[in-house]
Design a protein around this nucleic acid. Structure first.
Length: 602
RNA sequence: GGGGCUGUAGCUCAGCCUGGUUAGAGUGCCGGUCUGUCACACCGGAGGUCGCGGGUUCGAAUCCCGUCAGCCCCGCCA
């Protein structure tokens, strides 16, 4: 994980009619100058005759001091009246503090105020901007309802400033690499992604609806067709699905597309951009090129297509070692085309039976039949399998699978699609419990060679693994038609410490292959024409090979600032029920407007 | 759509398991004392629909049912 960037003193000239500098900009070099500053009253300390005000603006906090020797009585009377979050302007001489506060950026100095204006009065606060130590933040409900106050907290200021640094770095890096920023419509038609659309009724065309874009996917390909061979956009995307800590109904993607490229060209652009974001935002360097791992290998070694490589443990196939040794459960699974896979947890014997049971339950929640465990203690093997572990098996466990004294083996048997999610979850959770994640590492990774299709578990039909416009490694319409699940896609993800940050592909620019891909998911020719005709038409007039990627900006920023929730890096987020608590959205509308739209409510 | 956690003073929480005085603490707020604080200190005070509705009970913040809101997870969603 990146460390939070050190707070730096802003150097920009912030002089205006109301101030000579930002509060956080003052330091010893300003001593003896007369300055004006403006901001919010953060804290006030009344010593009876002497007053101190911590004045806050977005640059930091500065101490103002008030005393009879340098402030006249009217000023002293006014400062006694000040409430937290009043907005004031203060003027006076910058002085060295007799007893500096080294914890404050401006702690060496203070302003001895001789002129004070109250620019705005604050009512008593529903939630405090000042965050008392040892006290939890107000509930998220109240933070969102009173978001204006919440945003004033230095932590939120820092988060949104980080967001700005990241988007600025994005623009700078992509511009340097020859990309042009172009906006695409928010009012569009229903798009091919799998999510539910937000719909906007049309007044001029009753019974018809615009859809808000789930992503600019089709438009960016059209821009390529339009001759903008390097496009990007910091784009709002909207999806009407249920939310999570890392999901909002509207979120932001860094959307990039480029022509005349192959995969390596795209990788270079993305790596250069992310290096710049990390450098400008966090002041840290990212080494490139990133590691690469084919999808199939990732699943085999880690059980997931977004492995956290800071955990050194890998999955291992125990099928040969643990079958035909008298353990019927495993033999039965293998007879049904399953495998016995497991993970060797170094030092795992410290886990109690109840902890092991906990992981067993977790595994079952994600679809495994259950977990069998095996401990290697000084005294020998223990666990349900121990009695069937003979000398030969023991030697194989130690030799082939590297089990050592003190280790614990979690075993899950079944078909790979049942066992992989369980093993992945156990690997991550146990590593966290045993502190086996190397937090000093940053592991950037490209996952490549995704399958073009996954099988829909209900219908058995192919569904797009990434999206509908990905180029197969072998662009053969016949193969797509006859054996869709064997087709590998030129698609890729960026995974950072186990989190998916970005996703992209080389696009399919052969119209007949594109039709075959769409047809494979069960769309008729008519449906293809109706929904994607405009893209296929664009492809008829000369389409260059092209590809791109999209980065989930909110998640990226959340990681950069160390927040578990993307709500902390969005100025005005929605709740888990997609409500806006500040503005009370969604709201009812006037019946006359509905009538105009041709909509009646039951 | 399903599961879990939470809801008590403006705010953060305790009390709830095991029902029984006037529901507490810290902080904030109001009043007072205080000339070097920086979580200022000290003294005093006000402040409660225990989310809402119903039930059980002699008696409910506490037990039960429902409901609303927030959060987390599964489904869903790249």
């Amino acid at each position: 994980m990146p460390s939070r960037s050190q707070e730096k003193r802003e150097t920009v000239d912030l002089r205006t009619a109301y101030r000579d500098a930002g509060c956080g900009q003052l330091n010893a070099s300003w001593i003896e100058r007369e300055v004006s500053v403006s901001g919010w009253v953060h804290r006030r300390r009344d010593l009876g005759g002497l007053f101190f005000v911590d004045l806050r603006d977005r640059t930091g906090i500065l101490q103002l001091s008030f005393g009879p020797e340098w402030s006249d009585q009217a000023v002293l009377d006014l400062v006694e009246q000040l409430n937290p979050e009043d907005v004031i302007r203060a003027t006076g001489i910058v002085c060295q503090r007799p007893d500096p506060n080294l914890e404050m950026l401006t702690g060496e100095v203070e302003i001895q105020v001789d002129t004070l204006e109250r620019l705005a009065v604050s009512d008593p606060l529903p939630i405090l901007v000042y965050q008392p130590p040892d006290e939890d933040l107000p509930s998220e409900e109240l933070r969102l309802r009173h978001r204006v106050l919440d945003l004033r907290r230095p932590e939120m200021q820092h988060n949104l400033r980080m967001r700005h640094l990241a988007t600025s770095a994005t623009r700078a890096s992509l511009a340097e690499q020859g990309f042009v920023e172009i906006e695409t419509p928010m009012l569009t038609r229903q798009t091919p992604e799998g999510a539910r659309d937000y719909l906007v009724p049309s007044r001029t065309h009753n019974r018809r609806f615009y859809a808000l874009p789930q992503s600019p996917q089709l438009y960016k390909q059209l821009l390529i067709c339009g001759g903008f061979d390097r496009y990007f956009q910091i784009a709002k995307c909207l999806r009407d699905e249920d939310l999570r800590a890392d999901r909002q109904p509207e979120f932001t993607q860094i959307d990039v597309e480029m022509a005349f490229v192959d995969q390596d060209d795209v990788f270079k652009v993305a790596e250069t951009m992310l290096q710049r974001i990390w450098h400008d935002g966090l002041g840290s360097s990212v080494s490139a090129p990133f590691e690469r791992l084919p999808y199939a290998e990732a699943l085999e070694r880690f059980g997931t297509d977004k492995p956290d490589l800071r955990i050194s443990w890998e999955l291992s196939d125990f099928t040969h070692t643990l079958t035909d040794i008298g353990f019927g459960i495993f033999d039965a699974v293998v007879a049904a085309d399953g495998r016995v896979r497991g993970i060797v947890v170094k030092g795992g014997t410290v886990l109690s039976r109840s902890r092991i049971n906990h992981y067993d339950e977790l595994a079952q929640e994600v679809g495994a039949k259950g977990v069998i465990w095996l401990k290697r203690a000084e005294s020998g093997w223990s666990g349900p399998l121990a009695k069937v572990v003979g000398e030969e098996t023991s030697a194989e466990l130690e030799g082939t699978h590297g089990v050592e004294e003190g280790d614990l083996v979690f075993l899950v048997a079944g078909r790979d699609e049942e066992t992989a999610p369980a093993l992945d979850l156990i690997r991550r959770r146990v590593a966290r419990e045993l502190d086996a994640i190397d937090e000093d590492q940053d592991r950037w990774l490209w996952i490549t060679e995704f399958p073009l299709f996954h099988k829909d578990p209900e219908t058995g039909l192919p569904v797009h693994a990434q999206h509908a416009f990905t180029m197969p490694v072998d662009p053969d319409p016949k193969l797509i038609h006859e054996d869709p699940f064997s087709v590998t896609a030129r698609a890729y993800d960026i995974v950072y410490n186990g989190m998916e940050f970005a996703s992209g592909s080389i696009r399919c620019h052969f119209p007949e292959v594109q039709r075959a891909i769409l047809a494979a998911t069960g769309l008729s020719d008519e449906e293809i024409e109706a929904r994607f005709g405009f893209l296929l038409e664009a492809f008829r007039y000369g389409v260059p090979p092209h590809g791109g990627f999209a980065v989930g900006l909110d998640r990226l920023i959340a990681v950069m600032v160390g927040s578990p929730s993307i709500r902390d890096v969005i100025a005005f987020p929605k709740t888990a029920a997609a409500r806006g608590l500040l503005e009370q959205s969604p709201s009812e509308v006037d019946p006359s407007e509905l009538a105009e739209l041709g909509i009646s409510l039951d």
